[in-house]
Design a protein around this nucleic acid. Structure first.
Lengths: 141, 141
DNA sequence: AATCAGATTAGAACAAATCTAAACTATTGA
DNA sequence: TCAATAGTTTAGATTTGTTCTAATCTGATT
Protein backbone atom coordinates (compact mmCIF):
# COMPACT_ATOMS: atom_id res chain seq x y z
CA UNK A 1 0.00 0.00 0.00
CA UNK A 2 1.10 3.48 -0.82
CA UNK A 3 1.53 5.75 2.15
CA UNK A 4 0.53 8.73 0.02
CA UNK A 5 -2.79 7.11 -0.67
CA UNK A 6 -3.60 6.20 2.88
CA UNK A 7 -2.52 9.37 4.60
CA UNK A 8 -2.41 12.01 1.93
CA UNK A 9 -2.51 14.86 4.47
CA UNK A 10 0.27 13.92 6.80
CA UNK A 11 3.24 14.37 4.45
CA UNK A 12 1.91 17.60 2.99
CA UNK A 13 1.22 18.97 6.44
CA UNK A 14 4.79 18.21 7.40
CA UNK A 15 6.19 19.82 4.30
CA UNK A 16 4.30 23.01 5.01
CA UNK A 17 5.29 23.10 8.65
CA UNK A 18 8.91 22.44 7.77
CA UNK A 19 8.73 25.41 5.45
CA UNK A 20 7.44 27.56 8.31
CA UNK A 21 4.01 27.84 6.75
CA UNK A 22 0.84 27.15 8.70
CA UNK A 23 -1.01 24.29 7.07
CA UNK A 24 -4.22 26.15 6.37
CA UNK A 25 -7.13 24.72 4.43
CA UNK A 26 -6.14 26.78 1.36
CA UNK A 27 -2.48 25.87 1.42
CA UNK A 28 -3.18 22.21 1.91
CA UNK A 29 -5.66 22.15 -0.94
CA UNK A 30 -3.28 23.96 -3.28
CA UNK A 31 -0.36 21.80 -2.23
CA UNK A 32 -2.40 18.73 -3.09
CA UNK A 33 -3.26 20.12 -6.52
CA UNK A 34 0.35 20.98 -7.14
CA UNK A 35 2.27 18.07 -5.69
CA UNK A 36 0.05 15.04 -5.98
CA UNK A 37 0.22 13.44 -9.36
CA UNK A 38 3.58 14.21 -10.88
CA UNK A 39 5.51 17.24 -11.99
CA UNK A 40 3.71 20.14 -13.55
CA UNK A 41 3.89 23.75 -14.68
CA UNK A 42 1.25 26.27 -13.70
CA UNK A 43 0.53 29.97 -13.86
CA UNK A 44 -1.41 31.69 -11.09
CA UNK A 45 -4.51 32.08 -13.23
CA UNK A 46 -4.38 28.42 -14.25
CA UNK A 47 -4.15 27.23 -10.69
CA UNK A 48 -6.98 29.53 -9.69
CA UNK A 49 -9.19 28.15 -12.47
CA UNK A 50 -8.30 24.63 -11.45
CA UNK A 51 -9.14 25.33 -7.81
CA UNK A 52 -12.53 26.73 -8.81
CA UNK A 53 -13.20 23.66 -10.90
CA UNK A 54 -12.44 21.49 -7.89
CA UNK A 55 -14.68 23.74 -5.80
CA UNK A 56 -11.86 24.82 -3.55
CA UNK A 57 -12.72 28.26 -2.18
CA UNK A 58 -9.56 30.29 -2.52
CA UNK A 59 -9.02 33.83 -3.72
CA UNK A 60 -6.66 34.86 -6.48
CA UNK A 61 -4.68 36.87 -3.93
CA UNK A 62 -4.08 33.71 -1.96
CA UNK A 63 -3.02 31.87 -5.08
CA UNK A 64 -0.35 34.51 -5.66
CA UNK A 65 0.67 34.54 -2.01
CA UNK A 66 0.88 30.78 -1.88
CA UNK A 67 2.85 30.37 -5.09
CA UNK A 68 5.36 32.95 -3.91
CA UNK A 69 5.62 31.42 -0.45
CA UNK A 70 6.10 27.95 -1.92
CA UNK A 71 8.78 29.34 -4.21
CA UNK A 72 10.61 31.03 -1.34
CA UNK A 73 10.35 27.82 0.67
CA UNK A 74 11.91 25.89 -2.19
CA UNK A 75 8.81 23.82 -2.88
CA UNK A 76 8.45 25.36 -6.34
CA UNK A 77 10.70 26.96 -8.89
CA UNK A 78 9.84 29.87 -11.11
CA UNK A 79 10.44 29.53 -14.83
CA UNK A 80 10.84 32.66 -16.91
CA UNK A 81 10.09 31.96 -20.55
CA UNK A 82 7.30 34.31 -21.12
CA UNK A 83 7.47 38.00 -20.42
CA UNK A 84 4.08 38.88 -19.04
CA UNK A 85 3.28 35.75 -17.08
CA UNK A 86 5.04 33.75 -14.36
CA UNK A 87 5.28 29.99 -14.59
CA UNK A 88 5.87 27.78 -11.58
CA UNK A 89 7.41 24.35 -11.81
CA UNK A 90 7.01 21.58 -9.26
CA UNK A 91 10.03 19.74 -10.65
CA UNK A 92 12.93 20.51 -8.32
CA UNK A 93 15.44 18.22 -9.97
CA UNK A 94 18.22 19.57 -12.12
CA UNK A 95 16.51 20.11 -15.46
CA UNK A 96 15.87 22.54 -18.29
CA UNK A 97 13.01 23.54 -20.55
CA UNK A 98 11.60 23.33 -23.99
CA UNK A 99 9.31 26.22 -24.76
CA UNK A 100 7.09 26.16 -27.82
CA UNK A 101 6.35 29.81 -28.54
CA UNK A 102 3.44 29.13 -30.87
CA UNK A 103 1.44 27.16 -28.31
CA UNK A 104 2.96 28.27 -25.02
CA UNK A 105 3.75 24.63 -24.21
CA UNK A 106 6.46 24.26 -21.59
CA UNK A 107 8.18 20.89 -21.15
CA UNK A 108 11.02 19.68 -18.99
CA UNK A 109 14.06 17.78 -20.02
CA UNK A 110 16.61 16.30 -17.65
CA UNK A 111 19.91 18.03 -17.15
CA UNK A 112 21.56 14.65 -17.08
CA UNK A 113 23.09 14.21 -20.51
CA UNK A 114 23.34 17.96 -21.07
CA UNK A 115 26.73 19.62 -20.81
CA UNK A 116 27.16 23.38 -20.74
CA UNK A 117 30.82 24.17 -20.95
CA UNK A 118 32.80 27.36 -21.21
CA UNK A 119 30.49 29.62 -19.23
CA UNK A 120 32.57 32.70 -18.55
CA UNK A 121 33.55 33.79 -15.07
CA UNK A 122 30.82 35.78 -13.28
CA UNK A 123 31.33 39.56 -13.24
CA UNK A 124 33.10 41.10 -10.26
CA UNK A 125 31.08 41.02 -7.05
CA UNK A 126 28.73 38.32 -8.31
CA UNK A 127 28.68 34.57 -8.52
CA UNK A 128 26.75 32.12 -10.63
CA UNK A 129 23.46 31.14 -9.09
CA UNK A 130 22.08 28.91 -11.84
CA UNK A 131 22.71 28.19 -15.49
CA UNK A 132 19.38 27.95 -17.26
CA UNK A 133 18.98 26.46 -20.70
CA UNK A 134 15.81 27.25 -22.62
CA UNK A 135 15.33 25.48 -25.90
CA UNK A 136 12.87 27.49 -27.94
CA UNK A 137 10.84 25.45 -30.38
CA UNK A 138 9.00 26.31 -33.57
CA UNK A 139 6.67 24.20 -35.67
CA UNK A 140 8.61 21.74 -37.78
CA UNK A 141 8.72 22.79 -41.39
CA UNK B 1 36.90 60.03 -41.43
CA UNK B 2 34.09 57.83 -40.20
CA UNK B 3 31.24 57.48 -42.62
CA UNK B 4 28.81 57.12 -39.70
CA UNK B 5 29.80 60.53 -38.44
CA UNK B 6 29.50 62.32 -41.76
CA UNK B 7 26.26 60.79 -42.95
CA UNK B 8 24.58 59.35 -39.93
CA UNK B 9 21.15 59.27 -41.60
CA UNK B 10 21.86 57.45 -44.82
CA UNK B 11 22.65 53.97 -43.43
CA UNK B 12 19.80 54.06 -40.94
CA UNK B 13 17.39 55.18 -43.61
CA UNK B 14 18.46 52.25 -45.74
CA UNK B 15 18.10 49.80 -42.91
CA UNK B 16 14.55 50.90 -42.25
CA UNK B 17 13.58 50.83 -45.90
CA UNK B 18 15.11 47.39 -46.30
CA UNK B 19 12.96 46.26 -43.42
CA UNK B 20 9.88 47.61 -45.19
CA UNK B 21 9.47 50.39 -42.64
CA UNK B 22 8.97 54.00 -43.65
CA UNK B 23 11.83 56.05 -42.28
CA UNK B 24 9.71 58.44 -40.26
CA UNK B 25 11.11 61.05 -37.92
CA UNK B 26 10.26 58.90 -34.90
CA UNK B 27 11.71 55.67 -36.24
CA UNK B 28 14.89 57.38 -37.37
CA UNK B 29 15.36 59.03 -34.00
CA UNK B 30 14.78 55.79 -32.11
CA UNK B 31 17.01 53.84 -34.47
CA UNK B 32 19.77 56.32 -33.77
CA UNK B 33 19.32 55.97 -30.02
CA UNK B 34 19.34 52.22 -30.32
CA UNK B 35 21.99 51.51 -32.92
CA UNK B 36 24.53 54.27 -32.69
CA UNK B 37 27.05 53.70 -30.00
CA UNK B 38 27.38 49.98 -29.43
CA UNK B 39 25.18 47.15 -28.28
CA UNK B 40 22.62 47.73 -25.61
CA UNK B 41 19.60 46.39 -23.77
CA UNK B 42 16.48 48.47 -23.30
CA UNK B 43 12.94 48.19 -22.05
CA UNK B 44 10.15 50.23 -23.62
CA UNK B 45 9.89 52.54 -20.63
CA UNK B 46 13.64 53.10 -20.58
CA UNK B 47 13.73 54.03 -24.23
CA UNK B 48 10.79 56.34 -23.76
CA UNK B 49 12.51 58.10 -20.87
CA UNK B 50 15.68 58.40 -22.91
CA UNK B 51 13.80 59.89 -25.84
CA UNK B 52 12.17 62.48 -23.60
CA UNK B 53 15.57 63.38 -22.18
CA UNK B 54 16.85 63.92 -25.70
CA UNK B 55 13.71 65.94 -26.43
CA UNK B 56 12.54 63.58 -29.10
CA UNK B 57 8.76 63.86 -29.33
CA UNK B 58 7.51 60.31 -29.47
CA UNK B 59 4.63 58.62 -27.68
CA UNK B 60 4.90 55.49 -25.58
CA UNK B 61 2.60 53.73 -28.05
CA UNK B 62 5.09 54.44 -30.81
CA UNK B 63 7.94 53.14 -28.66
CA UNK B 64 6.09 49.86 -28.30
CA UNK B 65 5.15 49.75 -31.98
CA UNK B 66 8.68 50.52 -33.04
CA UNK B 67 10.36 48.01 -30.76
CA UNK B 68 8.04 45.28 -31.98
CA UNK B 69 8.49 46.24 -35.62
CA UNK B 70 12.26 46.31 -35.23
CA UNK B 71 12.10 42.91 -33.58
CA UNK B 72 9.99 41.46 -36.38
CA UNK B 73 12.36 43.00 -38.91
CA UNK B 74 15.29 41.32 -37.19
CA UNK B 75 16.92 44.58 -36.12
CA UNK B 76 16.43 43.70 -32.46
CA UNK B 77 16.07 40.57 -30.39
CA UNK B 78 13.86 40.12 -27.40
CA UNK B 79 15.39 38.75 -24.22
CA UNK B 80 13.14 37.07 -21.69
CA UNK B 81 14.73 37.12 -18.26
CA UNK B 82 12.16 38.99 -16.36
CA UNK B 83 8.53 38.05 -16.26
CA UNK B 84 6.69 41.34 -16.28
CA UNK B 85 8.93 43.38 -18.54
CA UNK B 86 10.31 42.91 -22.05
CA UNK B 87 13.96 43.54 -22.79
CA UNK B 88 15.25 44.26 -26.26
CA UNK B 89 18.81 43.63 -27.31
CA UNK B 90 20.59 45.30 -30.22
CA UNK B 91 23.25 42.60 -30.25
CA UNK B 92 22.36 40.25 -33.10
CA UNK B 93 25.45 38.08 -32.85
CA UNK B 94 25.33 34.63 -31.35
CA UNK B 95 25.50 35.30 -27.64
CA UNK B 96 23.93 34.61 -24.26
CA UNK B 97 23.15 36.51 -21.07
CA UNK B 98 24.11 37.09 -17.52
CA UNK B 99 21.21 38.32 -15.45
CA UNK B 100 21.75 39.69 -11.98
CA UNK B 101 18.40 39.29 -10.26
CA UNK B 102 19.18 41.65 -7.41
CA UNK B 103 19.92 44.63 -9.64
CA UNK B 104 18.20 43.69 -12.89
CA UNK B 105 21.52 44.08 -14.70
CA UNK B 106 21.59 42.24 -18.01
CA UNK B 107 24.93 41.58 -19.71
CA UNK B 108 25.95 39.73 -22.85
CA UNK B 109 28.59 37.11 -23.23
CA UNK B 110 29.74 35.67 -26.53
CA UNK B 111 28.56 32.24 -27.54
CA UNK B 112 32.04 31.57 -28.90
CA UNK B 113 33.72 29.46 -26.25
CA UNK B 114 30.43 28.12 -24.95
CA UNK B 115 29.42 24.57 -25.79
CA UNK B 116 25.96 23.22 -25.10
CA UNK B 117 25.96 19.52 -25.79
CA UNK B 118 23.40 16.79 -25.40
CA UNK B 119 20.28 18.85 -26.02
CA UNK B 120 17.57 16.25 -26.55
CA UNK B 121 15.69 15.88 -29.81
CA UNK B 122 12.82 18.35 -30.21
CA UNK B 123 9.36 16.91 -29.50
CA UNK B 124 7.37 15.54 -32.44
CA UNK B 125 6.12 18.19 -34.83
CA UNK B 126 8.58 20.80 -33.60
CA UNK B 127 12.15 21.76 -34.27
CA UNK B 128 14.71 23.72 -32.32
CA UNK B 129 14.57 27.41 -33.01
CA UNK B 130 17.22 28.64 -30.59
CA UNK B 131 19.08 27.40 -27.54
CA UNK B 132 19.21 30.16 -24.98
CA UNK B 133 21.54 30.12 -22.02
CA UNK B 134 20.79 32.44 -19.13
CA UNK B 135 23.33 32.59 -16.35
CA UNK B 136 21.59 33.91 -13.26
CA UNK B 137 23.85 35.76 -10.87
CA UNK B 138 23.63 36.52 -7.17
CA UNK B 139 25.79 38.75 -5.04
CA UNK B 140 29.08 37.10 -4.21
CA UNK B 141 29.23 35.97 -0.64
C1' DA C 1 -0.71 69.47 -55.38
C1' DA C 2 -3.99 65.45 -54.44
C1' DT C 3 -4.37 61.03 -52.93
C1' DC C 4 -3.94 57.34 -49.89
C1' DA C 5 -1.69 53.74 -47.40
C1' DG C 6 0.82 53.74 -43.60
C1' DA C 7 2.31 55.90 -39.10
C1' DT C 8 1.54 58.36 -34.88
C1' DT C 9 -1.01 59.62 -30.97
C1' DA C 10 -3.76 60.28 -26.50
C1' DG C 11 -6.28 57.94 -23.92
C1' DA C 12 -9.00 53.89 -23.01
C1' DA C 13 -8.73 49.15 -22.16
C1' DC C 14 -6.63 45.07 -20.65
C1' DA C 15 -3.81 41.74 -18.08
C1' DA C 16 -0.77 40.21 -14.49
C1' DA C 17 0.62 41.02 -10.10
C1' DT C 18 0.74 43.41 -5.75
C1' DC C 19 -1.17 46.05 -1.98
C1' DT C 20 -4.49 47.34 1.71
C1' DA C 21 -6.89 46.92 5.68
C1' DA C 22 -10.58 44.36 7.57
C1' DA C 23 -12.18 39.79 8.84
C1' DC C 24 -10.86 35.24 9.98
C1' DT C 25 -8.21 31.15 11.93
C1' DA C 26 -4.43 28.22 13.75
C1' DT C 27 -1.51 28.06 17.56
C1' DT C 28 -0.18 29.15 22.27
C1' DG C 29 -0.32 29.01 26.82
C1' DA C 30 -3.05 30.10 30.92
C1' DT D 1 -11.02 25.00 27.27
C1' DC D 2 -10.76 29.41 25.89
C1' DA D 3 -8.68 34.06 25.19
C1' DA D 4 -5.01 36.27 23.19
C1' DT D 5 -2.20 36.89 19.35
C1' DA D 6 0.34 36.27 15.38
C1' DG D 7 -0.29 34.71 11.02
C1' DT D 8 -3.59 34.10 6.99
C1' DT D 9 -7.16 35.08 3.79
C1' DT D 10 -9.93 38.07 1.25
C1' DA D 11 -12.41 41.56 -1.88
C1' DG D 12 -11.44 45.16 -4.06
C1' DA D 13 -8.39 48.91 -5.16
C1' DT D 14 -4.02 49.93 -7.15
C1' DT D 15 0.06 49.57 -9.90
C1' DT D 16 2.60 48.34 -13.86
C1' DG D 17 3.44 46.85 -18.47
C1' DT D 18 1.37 46.39 -22.81
C1' DT D 19 -2.04 46.58 -26.47
C1' DC D 20 -6.03 48.62 -28.67
C1' DT D 21 -8.91 52.27 -30.80
C1' DA D 22 -10.13 55.61 -33.76
C1' DA D 23 -8.89 60.22 -34.95
C1' DT D 24 -5.21 62.80 -36.95
C1' DC D 25 -1.10 63.29 -39.45
C1' DT D 26 2.75 62.23 -42.88
C1' DG D 27 5.52 60.11 -46.49
C1' DA D 28 5.29 58.20 -50.94
C1' DT D 29 3.16 58.10 -55.40
C1' DT D 30 0.72 60.05 -58.93
Amino acid sequence: MDVMKDRPFAPMLERLRNAGLRPTRQRLALARLLFEGGNRHVTAEQLHAEARREEIAVSLATIYNTLNQFRKAGLLREVVVDSGRSWFDTNLEDHHHFFHEATGALTDFEAEGLAVEGVPRAPRGTEIDRVEVIVRLRDAG
